[in-house]
Design a protein around this nucleic acid. Structure first.
Length: 269
DNA sequence: CTGGGGAGGGGGCCC
DNA sequence: GGGGCCCCCTCCCCA
């Protein structure tokens, strides 16, 4: 018995919610580590130059330069030509760590699952490009999943060996590594998840449980986020607003489509 | 084409 | 430090 799941791929979060009703996530998530780039990517569209949405995206991307600007403090170019997909930091401490089964020997999955049916992440993931670093000297006694770059006294960097992501705390890195090792396995269909609550939510798809109901229409949902999205349909003013025509949408994707089609000409003119 | 639901993922916060 | 939960987000599919 195989659960039929649609193939999903996570793309980079590069959209810009226009949240007129609540502070942008960047306000809420203030102090932690890796959210910075993502938060920057969520720069509200309405705050971007309204005359050129495409350029706005470009400008926004350019805005990442701000984020990148502090990276030299963290990154050490392992070589002047370190643009190759081969991640330098991974080579520093354990050249064979990549070839070894990191997920099976990592700190997370061992003993957590009997036999995760999901393919070994390290077998399939090919790190695209490790950002260049400054100050990487040596790695301490971490698991082979974890690499640390003692770059600055204030901000040590831990980064995942499975992907280019980096963290300033080991706990955050370990949390992230779970997304690679997927220690939580559905007993019904065998699908693996990174966190128990994700698994619980998935199990609801089997049981049909819908604990989250809309107070307006009594429609029930298995996922709170979906209920929240649904509540947007009841709202007169939706969460995402077009910076050009001020029309609001319940979903960012709808706003994007709208901006690309309806307001594209006016926004680019 | 638009709007909405379903499912899933990631990071942050709190305990 | 870890677990649980939350919020936000994305993608796919369908009406």
């Amino acid at each position: 018995m195989v659960c039929q799941y649609r193939r999903r791929k996570k793309s980079s979060k590069q959209h810009f919610p226009v949240d007129n009703l609540s502070p942008p996530p960047t306000v809420k998530r203030t102090n932690m580590y890796n959210r910075s780039t993502t938060s920057l990517e969520r720069y509200p569209l309405a705050e971007l130059p309204a005359g050129d949405n495409n350029s706005a995206a470009t400008c926004y991307t350019t805005g990442l330069v701000w984020d990148v600007s502090f990276l030299p403090a963290l990154y050490v170019p392992t070589s002047p030509t370190d643009a190759s997909p081969t991640p330098g930091p991974l080579d520093l401490s354990s050249p064979s760590s990549l070839s070894s089964s990191a997920s099976s020997s990592g700190e997370e999955d061992e003993g957590r699952t009997s036999d995760p049916p999901s393919p070994e992440p390290t077998d399939t993931y090919h790190p695209p490009q490790r950002p260049k670093r400054t100050g990487i000297k040596s790695h301490g006694a971490l698991t082979e999943d974890e690499r640390v770059a003692p770059v600055t006294a204030a901000r040590p960097a831990f980064f995942c060996k499975h992907c280019p992501k980096e963290y300033t705390s080991l706990g955050a890195l370990k949390m992230h590594i779970r997304s690679h090792t997927l220690p939580c396995v559905c007993p019904t269909c065998g699908k693996a998840f990174s966190r128990p609550w994700l698994l619980r939510g998935h199990i609801r798809t089997h049981t049909g449980e819908r604990p989250f109901s809309c107070q307006h229409c009594n429609r029930a949902f298995a996922d709170r986020s979906n209920l929240r999205a649904h509540l947007q349909t009841h709202a007169e003013v939706k969460k995402y607003q077009c910076g050009v025509c001020s029309r609001t949408f319940s979903r960012m994707s709808l706003l994007q489509k709208h901006s690309a089609v309806s307001c594209s000409t006016s926004s680019t003119a």
